[in-house]
Design a protein around this nucleic acid. Structure first.
Lengths: 224, 224
DNA sequence: AACAATCCTGACAGTTCCTTAACGCGGCCC
DNA sequence: GGGCCGCGTTAAGGAACTGTCAGGATTGTT
């Protein structure tokens, strides 16, 4: 799933871009000014950003620099300004491409493909260890005593939610909703089955688990 | 030392580019047609290639595709043609940027900086070995028992994505999106067919693969 | 125009995974 | 103590997924 953020203050252009991009299989989020763009960029993991420089609140170059402070996603700049100083400024501020309005949608899509071809998925070291097993969130891998532990997709999803919130109590409803979807909040049966399987695969002593703990009546908790 | 290859059949432009680039600290080699460009690209390790599409001997898009067969250096295309079909064709053939003549030298330099900012160290020996086969990512070659293994373009793309992320689980959607494009995220049977072919060509025992592993319901993983 | 290589497509069998139900256990309240 | 509720455990049927093969479509080349 390729996630694209489109930032433009023109609602018509924004709508056209969203429809076109979605039709080509991208997941699209939008923003109409710099403030909401920066907010959206912090909240969603993005593969690419399309940024109009002429925003109502913040100068486009400024948005770019802010963005570069925390994101390395490729940025394709749209602008009505054809001057080469503008292009140089934007490109040196961190933009990866710059096209001027009006532009052809097929050219935009082609440049977008070219940028995405280069981009590597941001993989931050995310390894969580316990004395019994190790979870590598980036590689999607669990090892125990040096050997790989095979987890089914559902087992992994549950473990991932718990491990990403160490020591924190996750309610059954939260788990069910994140793994099976919001409609399954009543199926606590599922959790019992899968927690048992996870413990059998990961806990040294299944009868008295030390890392995958039950909070009776509420939910589960992962302790490193 | 940043090495740039400039390919153009206009000696004046070629000279102007060489002087400008050298003045900005780049090491420049030049070529005036497609044949010599391909030759020069095989002989020197390059950080970036500036390619004019209007070459006397070979069609520019063709040069691009040949180039992509053995080099992953970023390519900035120069062209006198403004049509969007030309741009789309070049970008999809492997170009990373496309600017039309006449262009400003400062814009060219800015785009060049943007491309180089993204690029990883050029052509450094990227060889991944397993006990069954060897993959040379830079040279685009796979050998097994000392003999070359012939891979089709699609087979190579899949293998490349997996090998560039050793031990990491790559989801079917990621693979499909990077090999066929974001719109093909549902066509999982493509993967089944090509993974089978890759295993037949690379795995000693196709029935129990040791390096190209399946994670049922999620994706595939390469283990060195 | 014919050929070769590659890619796509659909079907089948074998495997893995999810769901469901049943039962035992322990704690809690009446 | 008996009944109730929530949790852990296990097993089996069915659904979903994967590996495999072959024929046809497509592309590029001579």
């Amino acid at each position: 799933m390729t996630a694209v953020l489109v930032v433009d203050d023109d609602p018509h252009l924004l709508r056209a871009l969203r429809i076109t991009l979605q039709a080509h299989g991208y997941t699209v989020t939008t923003a109409v000014d710099g403030t909401s763009a920066l907010l959206a960029a912090t909240q969603n993991p993005l593969s690419l950003i399309i940024l109009d420089l002429g925003l109502p609140d913040i100068d486009g170059t400024r948005v770019l620099k802010e963005l570069r402070g925390f994101s390395s996603a490729p940025v394709l700049v749209l602008s009505a300004r054809h001057g080469s100083e503008d292009k140089v400024e934007a490109l040196d501020a961190g933009a990866d491409d710059y096209i001027t309005k009006p532009f052809g949608l097929d050219e935009l899509l082609a440049r977008l493909r070219a940028l995405l071809r280069r981009s590597v998925e941001p993989e931050h070291e995310a390894v969580v260890r316990t004395d019994a097993f190790t979870v590598d969130l980036a590689k999607h891998r669990v090892t125990r005593d040096g050997a790989d532990v095979r987890l089914t997709p559902t087992e992994w999803k549950i473990l991932e939610v718990l491990v990403r919130n160490p020591e924190k109590l996750i309610t059954q409803q939260q788990l069910l909703s994140r793994v099976w979807g919001p409609a399954y909040a009543k199926e606590t049966n599922y959790l019992r089955v899968y927690m048992a399987q996870l413990r059998r695969k990961l806990e040294p002593d299944t009868a008295s688990p030390r890392h995958l703990l039950t909070e009776a009546g509420i939910g589960y908790r992962f302790m490193p």
